[in-house]
Design a protein around this nucleic acid. Structure first.
Lengths: 341, 341
DNA sequence: ATGAAAGCGCTAACAG
DNA sequence: CTGTTAGCGCTTTCAT
């Protein structure tokens, strides 16, 4: 790397002290106009740029936020990331971003790498594996070391920090009710995220809706599909029961997969089967039929998370109590749950 | 932020010098075993972590790579990002990531923010606006300041650095030929990216294929739709010509949009109209019919870019000539271009 | 108006 | 074996 020009270089060039140069470049009144202009001109034409690392060392902050996301190919997380980036860049913060890839080990390693002083704060959504293991030591340690943290979506009650989530239970409740109101008599649930906190909450919301509508909760209608299991097989087993006429999928990809398979099985949608799902990805509106979905407002979540964190970083003295913000989802009704006349 | 423990703190605690502590923690042979163990134990139980900023200042590197991407919601860029992240984290580099949002100004601002010393290298794909303005001063400056850079996909010939691209021209050529071989007599082209270098190359490839097949190149079959123009209107104007029976879309979203509209116009696909497009997003395989697409192997591009950059960073002395790597795309044939019997 | 000195946290050469 | 010193690039008192 070509050596960058420093204050020292400029000082030597003019035979003045480093302090003078520093002040001159800051337009300090302590320095005579003539020295100031000659130094400023020289600095400019030689592309002097202050060394951020040195400033960080001095100021003990880095204007950098760490972002740990399970999977950027997931449209919800991508949207959150966009939101975080919006606010961060607006407020002059850098984003050091990592993809945990749902791995506990990667998450731990990443945090370890990040927190060694190069970071003012952290925004994180837990890896699936971490939620399964429920081992949060890497996070509590980070907090104990005084690094502010905001968790979103996949959080843990056991960690004391600011959080931002959606009303998962209620959203599932509403979506299920929507399916029932659109004519479904027997609604199944498909979860490939039963390991996640949000997955469990959504199941509860589903159950609550059934209860409220005086429909029986049948465990066999709740299909939990894990990583190593075959989606198609699992789906077909449930759908052997031909009275099922509605499906709540707890995330986008299982809805898309289900739609494809169900169409192949010669169901008509929504006539024979209605489908709704969580996470309003771009995909859903283009499918035939388009799929009704719960929008989690990812961008807004990201923006809020960034604001909360930056607020925490910049007002550390205040010692505000931790808050958990809840973002209300929106149900976007599409053809897959069209009411039949 | 709670104050982190430093070498100085440890030194004071034991009444030894900072240097001794530093060496002890490095398990230096210069230090007696007893001092080493007591210092190491104390450091461990007090969660001593070296201050990375101080080390960066000392070593004049940051183990940090800047990544500037036009839009993370685009599946190609998301895949590239995943690839970059893979390699970077494997080699112990952080990623400072920014989304330019296709804006020249954001790109310039970002680079300005990043390059002031907190960054060992940069990976970038140009914003659309930047490619239109063809103003690359922010990039050439960065290079002149000795910061290694790798450009991918949306590059400029005017910038001297390592690059990695796909064979856009040839890919379009092959896709067009594929449309023709599957029975199309008159192939239109839809470009919403005519501003981009890659867009222009793809048009050339399309033309080349027509020529080779002795088909006339008709400018009116080449639809260039810009940001402020209405996609639907533009598409319908071309499709007033009912003899068009094939469509090459230069990126994913226009293919998806076109499919939807064309289906609404009661075309049968692929019987009446075949469609192929660039960028193999997750969407395409789930549409009815599924759309044939050119995979640009984003993840591989990302990995390659990261490797090239890190190589450049870690072997700066060598002064290797700049290379442009070309990644070969793959055409994934799906139902939208099924050959008719 | 300018400069000397201390210090941010750490390392490394050199002394003792 | 341990300590002193200088220095990475910069800012900020405090002298002069």
């Amino acid at each position: 790397m070509k050596k960058r020009i420093t204050l020292k270089d400029i000082a030597q060039h003019f035979g003045v002290s480093i302090a003078t140069v520093s002040k001159a470049l800051k337009d300090s009144h302590e320095i005579s106009t003539s020295t100031k202009t000659k130094i400023q001109d020289y600095a400019k034409s030689n592309h002097y740029k202050p060394n951020v690392t040195a400033l960080n060392l001095l100021n003990k902050n880095t204007k950098t936020i760490g972002v740990i996301i399970p999977n950027i190919m997931n449209s919800f997380f991508a949207k959150v990331f966009v939101g975080i980036e919006n606010i961060a860049s607006e407020k002059g913060y850098h984003l050091v971003s990592c993809i945990s890839n749902e791995s506990y080990e990667k998450e731990v390693k990443t945090i370890d790498l990040l927190k060694h002083g190069s970071l003012d704060g952290l925004i994180i959504s837990l890896a699936e594996e971490t939620q399964v293991l429920q081992n949060y030591k890497h996070l509590t340690n980070t907090l104990n070391e005084g690094i502010p943290m905001v968790m979103f979506d996949r959080i843990s009650e056991d960690i004391e920090c600011d959080k931002i989530i959606v009303n998962d239970l209620e959203s599932a409740f509403q979506a299920t009710k929507h399916l029932i109101l659109s004519g479904c008599k027997r609604v199944g649930l498909i979860s490939v995220i039963d390991n996640l906190s949000v997955g469990k909450l959504r199941v509860e919301g589903y159950k609550k809706a059934l209860q409220e509508c005086d429909m029986r909760i049948e465990e066999k209608l709740i299909v939990r599909i894990h990583k190593n299991e075959d989606f198609e097989t699992a789906l077909k087993i449930v759908l052997a029961d031909k009275t099922i006429d509605g499906l709540l999928c707890l995330e986008e990809s299982s809805a898309v997969n289900a739609l494809k398979l169900i169409k192949q099985m010669d169901y008509k949608i929504p006539e024979d089967m209605s489908i709704a799902c969580f996470t309003n990805g771009k995909l859903l509106q283009y499918l035939s039929p388009s799929i009704s979905a719960i929008s989690q407002h990812g961008k807004h979540i990201g923006e809020t998370a960034a604001k909360m964190l930056i607020d925490r970083i910049e007002n550390e003295t205040e010692n505000k109590p931790y808050v958990t913000k809840i973002v209300k989802t929106s149900l976007i009704e599409r053809d897959s749950t069209k009411k039949l006349n």
